[in-house]
Design a protein around this nucleic acid. Structure first.
Length: 430
RNA sequence: GGAGGCUUCGCCUAGUUCGGUCUAUGGCGCCGCACUGCUAAUGCGGUUUGGGUCUUAAAGCCCAUCCCGGGUUCGAAUCCCGGAGCCUCCGCCA
């Protein structure tokens, strides 16, 4: 949610920023509608408040007169319908305003360029692509080494699901655990939240209404409220703090969570999205920070550096990209992707997306902090980042560390957790 | 799933019987000031949250807010209906 006061005061700059990700004519139309609704809203509030003040005064006078023993007639009964009518109008205006406002995306940061995926900027490349003869893709490797059972996964969950098996399950779980250890050591608070969330949490994070159809909705017996399977633990971490006020001393608040991510999006069968690259359920450890506004943008850099250090520690070749306005999530001011090299496709694939939402999510979720020396509580800034999406790191490890003899070397930092230095072909039936 | 109790401005709490200066009591905590070699103690004052209005800003003023949503009434923390959450006991169950 954008700051309506900013739209009032500096509509031109809002319009310019939004035009980086929307059609200018569409932006103009939405802002005009907002200006008009905002005007109506404030007029109605003024009228309603005045009417309520009058009624309060009359009720007080009535009580005083009655207490004094005078015979008095109620006077405000007729005005009730008029007040009700004003309140109904306000509710209608408010609803329209909220609808238009909540559909507007965040303002892209200054250094974020307009355009879609093609306008993304590669900022930096880390390491070098390993030289591999006869590259096998991760699906082949996973099948040969018995790491992932795609066929039985489909038997269980249908298309888009798989089972990690044997050393594959060990590797996946080692990744999750290694990230969990690292974030804990880095001072993030560990959370294991519910995977089933109330719809309100989806709206707070800005995923609804836009992605309402891309998540799994769950009906719960005897409860009218909608619930859904979380598409990322970002939704849970943010939602956990809905309508709360942070003490200044508690900022920045750093949290992280491990959950599977459930997405119902239609999985097209792109050749570079085979295997575990895209599915209806994947593992991800998410880091999150609530900060004071002045620390927001620099925290983004800190978090990206941190996530990159993880990928570097694994020994993978990757790069950093600054996303164009049209390719980053609507809730975000700026998003930086970490993309890892996939030898089989010759492409880089996103393994982490680190974003700075400014106060956009905080405004939707009602998350504020106390400003020292001020009566007015302000909205915090929120940042989130995958650290990391294991189901993307997993295939990158298989592909980048595959050996001539068909085995795969385990990254050094994971060897203790996996329980082997090298994964070789199994001899028994799986 | 059944029965009962409960939810008040950070925390605890008075108020709900029987509707009206409740414009919500008191304590703790916190902030400011005073006093004092320092600390402590003490005294005085302040301290829910959000919206509107005015203003360069602050202050002020107005409205809402006693778990949430409806209702009754001139008037609701208080009465009625619906919902959520917590606690106790019983039942069921990984």
């Amino acid at each position: 949610m954008l700051d309506i006061e900013l739209i009032r005061k500096d509509r031109a700059s809002v319009e310019a920023a939004l035009s980086k990700r929307l059609e200018p004519s569409e932006v103009s139309r939405a802002l005009s509608a907002i200006a008009e609704l905002d005007k109506q809203r404030r007029e109605l509030i003024g009228d309603i408040d005045a009417e309520r003040a009058r009624r309060k005064e009359e009720a007080r006078a009535f009580g005083a007169a009655k207490a004094a023993g005078q015979a008095v007639e109620p006077t405000t009964r007729d005005a009730k319908a008029a007040l009700q009518e004003l309140e109904d109008r306000l509710a209608a205006v408010q609803e329209q305003l909220t609808t238009v406002m909540s559909e507007l995306p965040n303002l892209p940061a200054e250094d974020v360029v307009a355009g879609g995926k093609e306008a993304n900027v590669v900022v930096k490349v880390f390491g070098e692509a390993p030289k591999i003869d006869n590259v096998r893709d991760h699906v082949t490797l996973a099948n040969e080494l018995g790491l992932v059972d795609f066929e039985r996964g489909v038997k269980l969950g249908g298309s888009g699901f798989w089972i990690y098996t044997g050393w594959g399950a060990r590797l996946e779980w080692a990744l999750v655990n290694w990230f969990i250890d690292r974030h804990f050591a880095a001072g993030y608070q560990f959370m294991l939240p519910p995977h089933l969330l109330l719809d309100s949490a989806g709206y707070a994070a800005g995923q609804f209404p836009k992605f309402y159809d891309d998540v799994f909705h769950i009906a719960t017996d005897g409860d009218e409220r909608g619930r859904f399977l979380l598409p990322t633990s970002e939704t849970a971490i943010l939602g956990a703090y809905q309508n709360e006020i942070f003490e200044t001393a508690d900022l920045p608040h750093k949290a992280y969570a491990y959950t599977p991510c459930y997405r119902s999006e239609k999985a097209g069968s792109h050749s570079d999205e085979r295997g575990t690259v895209r599915g209806h359920q994947f593992n991800k450890v998410e880091i999150f920070q609530f900060t004071a506004p002045e620390d927001g943008e620099k925290t983004l850099e800190e978090m990206v550096d941190y996530a990159e250090d993880l990928v570097s520690s694994l020994g993978l070749h990757f790069r950093r990209s600054l996303l164009a306005a049209g390719d980053s999530s609507a809730s975000m001011r700026k998003t930086i992707d970490i993309e890892v090299w996939m030898p089989s496709t010759g492409k880089y694939k996103e393994v982490s997306s680190v974003s700075w939402a400014g106060d956009y999510q905080a405004r939707r979720a009602g998350i504020r902090y106390r400003v020292p020396g001020s009566k007015n509580n302000r909205f915090v800034h929120t940042l989130n980042g995958s650290a990391l999406a294991t189901s993307r790191i997993f295939p990158a490890i298989l592909e980048q560390f595959q050996q001539e003899d068909g085995s795969v070397l385990v990254p050094e930092v994971l060897r203790d957790k996996v329980g082997t230095d090298r994964i070789v072909k199994p001899t028994k039936r799986r």
